[in-house]
């Protein structure tokens, strides 16, 4: 490694000191103006080949996006308005349907309670009639029984007296 390193230091030293004769680090010559001209030519060429067309593309796209996004915003606002309108309509419809349902429910309730009341009345009447009939029949049965008792006791009496 060492034998490589020593010439390296020498090389660094040689590189550092400006060389008096031809060559060296700070060797200015006609490369400089040629490079300036090359660079100016490159700038003009790139301007017409790259910056102008690509820049135009970018600006056109910006314009396109701006107009489109303006239109989009309009449409979005419109859509929002429509949504709101539909939502109010929907709420109205819901309220109406609720009212209809409540009404129907109330009507049904009324009908049901009416029917129930008439049915109860009818049942009550039926029951009263039945109990009255039972009482009548009971009465009739009692009276026949009494008659039978009388006849039997007459018979028993006559038999005992005859004997």
């Amino acid at each position: 490694m060492m034998f490589q390193f020593i010439p390296l230091v020498a090389a660094a030293a040689a590189a550092a000191e400006p060389v008096a004769k031809e060559g060296g680090l700070f060797d200015f010559n006609a490369t400089l103006p040629i490079m300036m001209i090359q660079f100016i030519v490159l700038t003009t060429l790139l301007n017409s080949l790259f910056y102008k067309p690509v820049g135009k593309m970018l600006d056109d796209r910006d314009e396109y996006i701006r107009t489109n996004s303006a239109g989009g915003e309009d449409r979005l606002a419109e859509a929002k308005k429509l949504t709101q309108q539909y939502e109010t309509e929907l709420a109205d419809a819901r309220r109406q349907s609720q009212a209809v349902i409540a009404e129907a429910k109330a009507a049904a309730q009324k009908i049901a309670s009416d029917e129930l009341a008439t049915a109860q009345q009818a049942a009550q009447a039926e029951k009263e009639k039945a109990s009255k009939e039972i009482a009548d029949q009971k009465q009739a049965a009692f009276s026949t029984l009494e008659k039978d008792v009388d006849a039997l006791s007459q018979q028993i009496l006559s038999k005992l007296v005859n004997v």
Binding site: F28, N29, L32, M35, F39, I40
Partner: peptide, 15 residues
Amino acid sequence: APTNDINTTVALALL
């Protein structure tokens, strides 16, 4: 690299 020559960098700087 062309930029490791002083002529190039001075040309760009002068421009």
